[in-house]
Structures are given as structure tokens and as C-alpha cells.
Computed example of a mutant assay.
Amino acid sequence: MAKSSSGRIIDQQKIIFALAVVLCLVFAFTLPGFATASNALSLLQAVATIGVLGIGMAIVIIGRGIDLSQIAVLVMPPAWMMYQIQAGVPMAEAAAYAGLAAIALGVLNGWLVAYVEVPAIFATLATGTLMYGTMQYLAVSNDVIPLPKRLEGFIALVQGGTFGIPNIVLFLLLVALVCWLFLRFTVWGRYVYAIGDNPMAARATGVPSRPILVLQYVISALAAFAAGVVLSASVESVNTRLFNSTMIYDVILVVVLGGVGLGGGKGSVSNVLVGTILIGIMTNGMTILNLSIEVQSLIKAGILLAAIIADSMLNPRDELTSQQGDI
């Protein structure tokens, strides 16, 4: 049964990759400006942030959870970091404080889900709003925070390239490699799959389920924080209004569309990368077509709904999943 399920996920990944190739070819021949080096560079830079967030989200979803607080971590700790640097705090110290804030939220999410047994969808929705509101009130009062001049070297690094490849894309590939190694070759990664596949059986066989759940949310928070720092350098500012955007739905979209099962225990980093490529190509094409944000959101919402329906058919919920509240 597990082998069959895995086969279905691999097939879905291949189908999505084929669709991405076909869509890319169609846009290249029909949209002026799509098949240019500058547009390809813009496309890759645009999907890097979503890809990193998607990888962090995938680890949580594989472990039968979900993290709706990612966007709060994407914007608020980096914004606080920039405020501290502007105030004269050493860069390493400011980064450490902001990183600890992100880790603290990850630990809080994991504690609420694993030990208090609050459904993940509600716990992370509440903690994300809590972080955003608290940091807006206590530390970050502006909506847009420009990067301090002291970070010119870091900005140049992020906006630059290595052997013709944008460094922000290399950052995505590095995160993907680290998380792939974590899931594939570590005991903790195998525990994530075991918990996602059958939490009760995993606990009965001695898997430390609760600490691993906490670890999942910490990894997701660190991925979101790293993505936020790199994003801020790529655009030379932090826009906290992203918290109120639909970005979290884009993240879930690339994860589910690529083939990570919402029921837990199924999926890989490569699924996220394939989903990210397809959504990146589609969004870039819609932008060239000058479709409004509302129309783009409507199209992506329809695709997300179709992906969720497909996931429910390919990875049907079992009795245990329904008892867990479907994440």
C-alpha cells in the first residue's frame, strides 16, 4: 500500500513537471519578452522565496501538520533585525536576536500542537497573528523598513550571481539540499515520515513524537526567517504588509500541487521544487499578460482547490487522520 501511494506521488510530480515544460514552451512562443534572459532571471528570483517557504512547509505537512504562521516569521523578525542594525546593534547580534524570536515562535507552535494538542491550523494561525501584532506594537512600527547602509555588502551578495546563476537561486538550492539530506538520511527525518504516516504506531514503537513535532515547526520557522532576510536584501527593504497578503496560500499551493500529501507521511523536497517551478512560470506569464492581482488570485485559488481535491483522491483520509482533525 505504501509503495502504491509513493508511486502515485511520483506520477503526480512527473505530470506537474511536464505541465511546467509545456506551459513554458507555450509562453515562450506566444508571449513577447517571456523567453529572455532578464525575464528568466526575474522568474527565478521571484520563486526562490516561495520555494524556501514551501520546503519548510513540506516538512511540517509530511509530519501531519501545517504552519500558517510562516508569513509572520518571514516579515517581522527580519524587520526587527533591520531596526536593531539601524539603532547601532552589531549585525551578528541583531541577527541572533531576530533568529531566536523566530525559533521561539516555532517552539511555541510545536508545544501547542504536540503537548497541548491544539489543532495545527488554529494554533499557527493564532501564533502568527500574535507575533505580528506584538512586534508591531513593541518593536516595528513602520510598514516598510529600508535596509541599513551597513548591509551594502550583504545586499550585493544576495543580488549578485555565481557562474551566471543568481545567488538567491543558489540559496534555494542550498536549503533544498539541506532539507533533503535531513529527510532522507537522518533518524529525525525518518521519524517525521513515521509520525505523518501513523502517529499512534510511531509512538507505540518508541518514536519521540512530541519532540519531533516541535522540531518540525522550528525548522519551518527558521526557513521562513532565512527566506525573509534574503528577500529583504533582494528588494532592499522589509514590507510587513506581506503578512496580510495571500502568500501563505501560494506556499500551500506549491507544496500540494507538487505532490506532498496533506494526510501526512508522503512527499519530498523535489515535489516542492516542481510545484514551485510550475507556479512561477504561470505567475510570470499572467504578469506579462497584465492580468490583475485579483484575477491571478482567483486562478491560483482554483488551482489550489483542484490540487486539494486531487490529493484527497490520491491520498484518501483514513480513520486515524479524521481522528486527528485533518491537520
Rank of each mutant, 00 (worst) to 15 (best):
L19F: 13
A194T: 05
A224H: 06
Y132W: 13
G133L: 14
A227L: 11
T321Q: 10
P146R: 03
G228E: 02
S270A: 14
S69E: 06
I71T: 04
L19W: 06
I155C: 04
L41M: 11
P208H: 04
P78D: 04
V254Y: 01
T283I: 01
V22K: 00
Q70E: 10
A58S: 11
I195K: 13
P199K: 03
R203A: 14
L31D: 04
P199A: 02
V158I: 15
A37M: 10
C24F: 07
A18E: 06
L213I: 15
E236T: 07
P316Q: 00
I195G: 03
R241F: 05
S237T: 06
M135R: 08
Y132D: 13
Q45W: 00
N142H: 12
G206Y: 02
Q296W: 04
V218Q: 12
G106N: 12
K266N: 00
T129E: 11
T246Y: 11
T129Q: 14
L68I: 14
Q70G: 03
R317Q: 12
W80A: 14
A40T: 02
M200K: 11
A301S: 15
V158S: 11
L25S: 09
S6T: 03
V89L: 05
Q216E: 14
S312R: 07
V22D: 04
Q296E: 06
N315Q: 10
V175G: 06
E294Q: 14
G265E: 13
G63Q: 06
T134P: 08
G261E: 06
G280W: 00
S312K: 05
T124I: 12
G106Y: 12
V116F: 02
G51N: 05
I219M: 14
L314K: 04
L174E: 08
V192M: 07
Q159R: 15
M286C: 06
A104C: 13
L278K: 04
Q216K: 15
N244R: 09
A123I: 12
G88N: 06
L177H: 10
P316C: 02
R150L: 14
F29Y: 03
N167C: 06
W180R: 15
V230R: 02
A310V: 08
D311W: 05
P78N: 02
V214I: 15
E319N: 05
